[in-house]
Measured scan of single mutants.
Amino acid sequence: MLYRITVRNADGEKLEIVVEMSEDEVRALAEELRKAGYEVRVEPIPEGEEP
């Protein structure tokens, strides 16, 4: 499935990426980023919607 991941650092800089991963993989990635001090938001992209 496609997911949009938005990551912000302490300075407020934002990075937005689209990935194709399983829900478990995305959850693990988000958890690791949060542990590293980043603010993370994950949104699933519905099938048929443009990323």
Rank of each mutant, 00 (worst) to 15 (best):
I45Q: 06
E13L: 13
R27V: 07
E31G: 10
I45D: 06
E47P: 12
V7W: 15
E23K: 09
Y3L: 03
L29F: 15
E47I: 12
N9D: 03
L29P: 00
M1G: 06
R27Q: 07
I17M: 11
D24L: 15
N9G: 09
P51G: 08
G12K: 03
V40C: 02
E16N: 10
L29R: 04
K35L: 08
P46W: 11
S22A: 10
T6S: 06
G12C: 11
L33Q: 01
D24R: 03
V40M: 01
T6M: 13
E20C: 03
Y38R: 02
V19W: 03
V18T: 06
K14E: 12
A28K: 07
E47T: 13
E23P: 10
E16A: 10
V18P: 01
E50D: 11
V18F: 10
D11G: 12
T6H: 09
R27K: 08
E32V: 15
V26D: 00
N9I: 09
E50A: 14
G12L: 04
E32G: 10
G12S: 03
V40D: 00
V26T: 03
R34C: 05
I17F: 08
I45V: 10
V19G: 04
R41I: 06
L15T: 11
M1Y: 15
E23L: 11
E31N: 13
K35W: 06
P44V: 14
E31A: 11
E43G: 03
P51W: 01
R27G: 09
Y3I: 02
R27C: 10
E49H: 11
E47R: 12
E47Q: 12
D24I: 09
V18G: 01
E16Y: 14
V42N: 00
L2M: 14
Y3F: 12
A36C: 04
V42I: 12
L15G: 06
K14C: 03
E39I: 14
I5Q: 00
P51D: 11
R8I: 07
R41N: 08
E39A: 12
E13M: 14
L15I: 08
M1K: 05
L2A: 06
L2I: 06
P51F: 01
G37E: 01
V7A: 14
V42R: 01
M1L: 13
I5N: 00
V26H: 00
D11V: 12
L33T: 01
V40G: 01
I5W: 01
E13T: 12
E39Y: 15
G37S: 02
E49F: 12
E39V: 14
V18K: 07
E49V: 11
S22C: 04
P51H: 08
V7E: 00
V7C: 04
E23Y: 11
T6F: 15
E25N: 13
M1I: 06
M1D: 02
K35V: 04
I17L: 09
V7M: 15
K35N: 05
V7R: 02
V18N: 04
I45F: 08
A10H: 13
L15F: 09
P44Q: 11
E23N: 08
R8Q: 10
P46H: 11
V19M: 06
Y3D: 00
I5T: 00
E39T: 15
R41S: 10
V40Q: 00
V42G: 00
G37T: 01
G48V: 15
E16T: 08
R4N: 02
P44T: 12
P44W: 10
V42T: 04
A30P: 00
L2C: 09
E25I: 05
Y38V: 03
V7H: 02
V42P: 00
A28V: 12
E23A: 13
L15P: 02
D11P: 03
